[in-house]
């Protein structure tokens, strides 16, 4: 009765074996093999055509090598993307318009600004919905309806309208990110702010606590695990929002603009390297949120949602 529960110590080799490293690596290798085979499959008709017209003798080995090193392949091989990334990430100055780091930075800044807007809006809406019954009934249907609008279709109009009233550059893109990412935060926070049970609320009542004290000392701390779960979703779709906002608006900067330019000129390798950078950026952002979640929750006794 007097001994406290001690966390168990697990050796690191055991964690590697039980953990995710080996399964994830296996899937990664399988995907790479599929990808390389897919590149041969998709690019070879074009190559065979060329061989025929040029009367070139070809073997299967030559076909494979050529399909992995075309200038404008339908599906580039992974190593071509690595070479392209090496050129556009490491070789260029990061302020250069040709550097993917520069474009990633442009997209990242509107992602983060939109994420901040969306988090603030999402939390404010949730607080209103939880505390004011009228808002619960009047706002909730609109919030759900807002997410049924195809954002790709209205993004150009938002940009044009905002451009007309003098808002250009970062803010309109951030607003589109905000539009996408406030939703999971509102939903998660409403759930979190309502998560305290009757007993925890009764306890506050016996202390004759004010509404503000119940909010700050009970509802907010109880909602933190829910908030972080939502933030992880929100940051990922905030990035999607930022890229989508760069696609239809004739933007010349950002990963979305690189994707669009690549598709104009049939630069598949450029498209794929922009996609790779976008994926890495997304992973980095989710990881950063997950890390702060870990830090915050461990200070709050290690509770989970």
């Amino acid at each position: 009765m007097t001994d406290a529960v001690q966390p168990q110590v697990i050796p690191s080799w055991r964690r590697l074996y039980d953990g995710k490293v080996i399964p994830v690596a296996t899937v990664l290798i399988a995907l790479l093999i599929l990808w390389l085979a897919g590149a041969v499959y998709m690019n070879s008709p074009q190559l065979i055509d060329q061989y025929k017209r040029g009367n070139v003798e070809w073997t299967f080995g030559k076909l494979v090598r050529d399909s992995w090193s075309m200038e404008r392949p339908i599906l580039p091989a992974p190593q071509q993307i690595v070479v392209e990334l090496d050129k556009t990430v490491l070789d260029k100055k990061i302020t250069s318009k040709r550097s993917l780091v520069y474009h990633a930075w442009v997209t990242l800044s509107s992602t983060l600004l939109g994420f901040a807007f969306g988090t603030i809006l999402g939390i404010l809406l949730a607080v209103g919905i939880v505390h004011i019954q009228t808002l619960d009934r009047s706002l909730m249907p609109w919030i759900i309806a807002s997410q049924t609008v195809p954002i790709l279709a209205i993004a150009p109009m938002i940009i044009v309208v905002l451009g007309n009233i003098g808002l250009t550059g970062l803010v309109p893109k951030a607003l589109i990110s905000m539009y996408l990412c406030f939703f999971p935060i509102t939903i998660g926070m409403v759930k979190g702010l309502r998560s305290p049970d009757v007993l925890q609320l009764d306890l506050m009542k016996t202390y004759s606590a004010s509404a503000a004290q119940v909010f700050w000392k009970l509802r907010i701390p109880a909602s933190i695990p829910f908030l972080f779960t939502s933030l992880k979703v929100a940051i990922a779709i905030s990035l999607v929002g930022a890229i989508v906002a760069e696609l239809p608006t004739g933007a010349i900067e950002g990963l979305g603009a690189r994707l669009l330019a690549g598709s104009y000129y049939g630069q598949t390798i450029q498209i794929w390297s922009a996609l790779t950078v976008a994926s890495l950026l997304g992973m980095l952002l989710v990881w950063a949120v997950a890390l702060s979640e870990k830090l915050v929750l461990s200070r709050m006794g290690g509770q989970a949602a």
Partner: peptide, 21 residues
């Protein structure tokens, strides 16, 4: 009496807040 905090109440369950030491 409640507003003057005249009593202490112990519930069936401990009802401790898990994020507080």
């Amino acid at each position: 009496a409640r507003q003057k905090r005249a009593y202490g109440y112990v519930f069936q369950a401990p009802a401790l807040y898990p994020w507080r030491t």
